[in-house]
Write a protein that binds this DNA or RNA. Structure first.
Lengths: 333, 333
DNA sequence: GAATGAAATGAAAACCATTACAATTACTGA
DNA sequence: TCAGTAATTGTAATGGTTTTCATTTCATTC
């Protein structure tokens, strides 16, 4: 089946390509009612779809943006992707989703592919290991927004959680409930992944604020599969913690799995709070207190920032936007 | 910043465009080691990225496929998307993910946008209401694979669950555990969404096999927000069901939420099985017996079918592939 | 009936890479 | 030095659209 082009439409409607193009771009003031109708009918009849690739080549704009997430397994990533997709759908944009799997190589590959495909901009959860690449996009003035993680030295618009506050909300809650021996577990912090670092810092600062001495043994940063070991180590301590803050949804899952397996009662034997809301939080036994990220607001903000870079509206905003988490108080603490 | 083209590279490396193009397409046999190196260095130095849009226009192939899911909120969709992405990443393809929100209008819009963008193929979870569109793609010989849902009359390659078996596995389990009054809840079946229909049919057939009379009051097909009402109705029956099969993960969540709220003990007051594995199934209290869809295998198969259509390898496969679910036996029944 | 100006239309260049092909140049070994 | 092969070049066409600007059309007016 031969594809039909604007030329076919033009010939068939007995007008020039230019006029058809004008029509396609809704510049009706340049043509008579009659030709407008004629073209409309012809398009209908031939079932013509303009070739967006050709248009993109000419216009240097693809109406497509890339979203590179560090790890699509986090609920948070999924929520953000969904919201970004929604936002851009309204604007007539498509999004290309890429999962870097926390792998800088893969990230690099994707970014280059996306740029080669001439996407109009990229929202990226940076792995943090491609500084030169980020730098280049920046100096090329290529529209880019960071999500969830910041790279201090780069001066790129960023949307992230107020992670410090996230920890604080949890710690305050623990203390309010009378716990003082509070542990924290996050996934690995190689490559200084900022939210994790910040959550730990927030944890430390909050304890300090409450005059609680820091116990290094209460802080674990390990891969998901090592969480059971980390928890076991807690319980082997002379003074095991009475409460644990799970640094993200994956950690929370592992913590709950462990507690279930070892028949440890929540919150009596161990109180638990998770950062990231999870779908089962409100009907688990006990219901789980979580610190919720405003994923949709964050996604919308990031999308907005990107779009304004793409459209070059407004002066450039290269600040780091930190949105506030909220505590969803339930019964696990 | 001016973008650099193949011409710039050619000039800079003092070779012709043709040679650079040969290089880009890895046809090294047409050039000496020396020129190969020279071009390589120049590309590196100028930081040249070939414009894939221009290439696509010429080659009529974008190395991009579209994935249109009916509803991205289902865990299953997410898993499938992830696996498809993985598969195509290996092949150097990008995927554009679209969420039709169970809305045929939106689906139509997306499919047309994707085709206008000249994607090389589409994997689609069909809403079922755009028969003419599906038909046209089919007759255009446009590569397309259906996922999760079938449209009987269309003769399009399809990958889906053996839904009949999924229900059977659950019912067999219920009966093995001594339950006879078994209910089922699925989300709405307007537009004859095939998995839901089939799961209900499987439910009916399995009961029949076991010689259990059908009770119409035990079957509910309602929207997610009406599930609490549906459950309440169960309990108001003269003989309330002792067991309930949740038709998908969203239904399961709502069922569990209800049970928690009304302090109904699982499995003693009501046994529960869910179709679709959920992340918390193995550490919930009680642990939840689920029927698991082989999401990754299904995704891989769909991707493979699509790719073979794109590459026109092998004869066309328009059959409906049904993969087998497995029962993950736990304690909720 | 011709001049005027606005409206409608068309021709051609541009976007950037691919491809084909004939033409040229550089090298190898005899 | 020559034939013969290998490497490279230049040119032009191709893909489908947008865009600019020149040209044509047409109704109006004097």
């Amino acid at each position: 089946m031969k594809t039909i082009t604007i030329t076919d439409v033009a010939n068939h409607a007995k007008v020039s390509k230019s006029t058809v193009s004008q029509y396609l771009n809704k510049r009706y003031e340049y043509m008579s009612e009659k030709t407008r109708k004629k073209i409309e009918e012809t398009i209908e009849e031939l079932n013509y779809q303009p070739n967006i690739i050709a248009r993109s080549l000419k216009q240097k704009s693809t109406f497509t943006v890339g979203v590179v997430v560090a790890n699509i397994l986090h609920t948070f990533s999924t929520q953000v992707i969904r919201a970004i997709e929604n936002y851009f759908y309204e604007q007539g944009f498509h999004i290309i989703v890429c999962n870097a799997d926390d792998n800088p190589e893969k990230e690099k590959n994707y970014i280059e592919m996306l740029r080669a495909k001439q996407v109009d901009g990229i929202i990226i959860f940076p792995t943090g290991d491609n500084l030169d690449l980020y730098q280049r996009m920046k100096s090329d003035q290529f529209p880019i927004v960071f999500m969830d993680r910041t790279i201090e030295e780069l001066d790129i618009a960023t949307v992230m959680l107020d992670n410090h506050l996230a920890s604080k909300l949890a710690i305050d809650r623990f203390i309010e409930k009378g716990f003082e021996n509070i542990a924290i577990i996050t996934t690995s912090i190689i490559r200084d992944i900022s939210p994790r670092i910040e959550r730990i810092q927030g944890y430390k600062d909050s304890l300090a604020t409450h005059g609680i001495p820091l116990n290094a043994e209460y802080i674990k940063t390990v891969n998901a599969d090592e969480i059971p070991v980390a928890l076991s180590e807690f319980f082997e301590l002379e003074k095991p913690p009475q409460a644990v803050l799970a640094g993200n949804d994956i950690v929370l899952n592992e913590v709950l799995r462990y507690m279930k397996q070892h028949e440890i009662n929540i919150p009596d034997d161990m109180a638990v709070i998770g950062i990231d809301e999870v779908p089962y939080a409100s009907f688990y036994t006990p219901t789980i207190t979580t610190v919720n990220q405003p994923a949709i607001e964050m996604a919308n903000l990031a999308a907005e920032l990107l779009l304004s870079q793409i459209n070059k509206t407004g002066k450039e905003d290269t600040s780091v936007h930190r949105l506030k988490p909220t505590l969803l108080s339930r019964n696990s603490c």
